[in-house]
Structures are given as C-alpha cells and as structure tokens.
C-alpha cells in the first residue's frame, strides 16, 4: 500500500483542521482501518491519528449523565467503576467485544464511526438514548445515536468533523436492560443478530412505562425497533405482549443473506432473541427504587 502521510494532532481543533484536507482519514484504534487499508478499500492520503488528543478519553459523571470520551478503549469500559455502577449493560457488551487483543486497541468512538451494521457498542447506546458529541470547524453539535448511523460504514459526520464523546443519560429508576448476540464463535465473530433491550416498569412492576429495543447485524445500520417499543409502552406486561413486541421488531429488520446467515434466519432470530432479551430486561428491572 502507498504510504500515507501521518499527522498527530494534540487538540481537537488541530484534528478538525487536518481532517478538512482531501484524502484525510481519521484514525483511532485502527483495528478496522488497518485491514481496510490493506485490502485497498480505503486509500488515505493523510492519516490523522487522533490518539494523541487530550481530553476526549475516559468516563465521567456529568450533570447531564455519563460522558464517555470517544478515545476510551473498549477494554477500559470493562472495569470502569462509573460504567459498572450506571451502565452495566455497556460493560457486558464490552466484555463480549472481539477479543482481549482487540479490546486493548479499539475505541468506542472508532466502533461507532466505522458504522458497521454489527457495531456491538451501538446497541446499548441506542437503548439508553445516548447522544453523540461532535466537533467540527463550525463548532460543536450533538446528534442522537438513533440519527448517527446512515448506512453501511456511513455516519452523520460531515467532512472535517470528529466524534469527541458520548453522553448517556443516567438510566431511569426501575429500568432493566439486556443484550444478546448470536454468532458461531464466542470471540471475534461478527454477530448474525445482536439485540439490546431496556425497559422501565411502573412502581407496581406491572406496566411497561418505557421500552427501547435496538437491533444489530440485521439492517444496513444498527437501529431501533420503534414498532416493538410502541407495542410495549403503557401496557400491562404479559408473555403474550412480549411475543407481540418480538414479532413487531422483525419489521425493522432489513437483513441480507451472506456467508454467515440467510436473511430468513436473521429475521427469525430477530424475533426469538428480541423476545428473550425483553424477558431478561423485565426480569432485571427492579420493582422498587434502588437504594
């Protein structure tokens, strides 16, 4: 491969300026970028290595929720005390992400900006209504994660913009969440189907106040299953209601047939796994306010 020029900005401002150039490509953990460059799918003239930028790494509590810097490595999500306490689902997903060798390199921002249909970390962020914090030449803006993914490997980022962090509202009381991933091998596999669900129940535990369902690997982008959510919200939770929601989730799936699984199989597994993830999420939802 032709050697690109490498730039190492130390501030977001410098990075944004460097990325405005034609042929400039942002690089974080590089675990998606390196194989893509070797295959010739991406031919950057300039590699803008973001890893030296201070201040967009790590996890913090803020007034608006939990802030996760885009350069935070997947491995760091696994044992972060703020994540463990507030967003344990994100730590669960991180624990099944690729392999230790990749988790020690890959970043949460990179996983989202690569925008693979199977992006594991997108699912918990979608069900917790996370917002992407973006900086560009014209300043800052925020994008709901549900609007962030625009197609296979395409995001809402404009040229010269970078993702600096994720803002995740603290999950509401009486919320339970679960994640399921179906693949052949425990490690490394891209999922055939990935499902995350988060539900908030009423104080008597009988009704579903709020529901979020996100699907991975069954459409060009990770996405919410709005119809499944609508089936649940405001209703008394019964086994039949969960089955109806699972059925409704299939309508959000636009799966392809490929080497790993057929479209029909993916649709069927979307239904089965949505039902299981919802049941687990309701089981985990505490009936009374914790603490």
């Amino acid at each position: 491969m032709a050697e690109p020029q490498m730039l190492q900005p130390s501030t977001v401002r410098e990075a944004v300026r460097a990325l405005a150039a034609r042929g400039a490509v942002a690089m974080a953990g590089a675990t998606d970028l390196i194989p893509a460059m070797r295959k010739g799918e991406i031919r950057p003239r300039i590699l803008v290595n973001l890893k030296g930028i201070a201040g967009i790494r790590g996890v913090k509590r803020t007034r608006r929720g939990i802030w996760i810097g885009a350069l935070t490595r997947v491995a760091d999500l696994l044992d972060d005390p703020v994540i463990a306490q507030n967003l344990p689902l994100l730590a669960e997903v991180a624990a099944e992400f690729a392999s230790p060798q990749i988790r020690n390199l890959a970043t949460i921002g990179g996983n989202l900006c690569n925008a693979a249909p199977s992006a594991d970390l997108a699912l918990p962020l979608l069900v917790f209504d996370a917002t992407a914090e973006v900086r560009g030449r014209s300043g800052k803006r925020e994008i709901a994660t549900s609007d962030f993914f625009r197609g296979v490997n395409r995001t809402a980022l404009r040229r010269g913009e970078i993702l600096t962090g994720l803002l995740v509202p603290r999950p509401r009381v009486r919320t339970g969440a679960a994640h399921l991933k179906l693949g052949v091998r425990k490690a490394m596999d891209l999922a055939f189907v990935g499902i995350a669900a988060a539900v908030q129940v009423s104080s008597d535990g009988k009704k579903c106040r709020r529901a979020r369902v996100a699907l991975g690997s069954v459409a060009p982008t990770p996405r919410r299953a709005a119809k499944a959510e609508a089936v649940l919200e405001g209703q008394v939770v019964t086994s039949q209601l969960i089955d109806e929601a699972a059925e409704a989730a299939v309508s959000a799936a636009r799966p392809v047939s490929d080497l790993r699984a057929s479209a029909d199989y993916r649709r069927e597994m979307t239904r089965v796994l949505t039902g299981r993830a919802l049941r687990e999420a309701f089981r985990r939802a505490p009936q009374e306010r914790p603490r």
Partner: peptide, 15 residues
C-alpha cells in the same frame, strides 16, 4: 504492550 495483549497486525508501530 505495557503488559497487555494486543494484535500486532492491527496496530501501527508508530503507536
């Protein structure tokens, strides 16, 4: 890398 396993085929030497 600093005691943690990494895939050396997925990382630039410069890093």
């Amino acid at each position: 890398l600093d005691g943690e396993p990494v895939a050396s085929c997925m990382m630039l030497a410069a890093d």
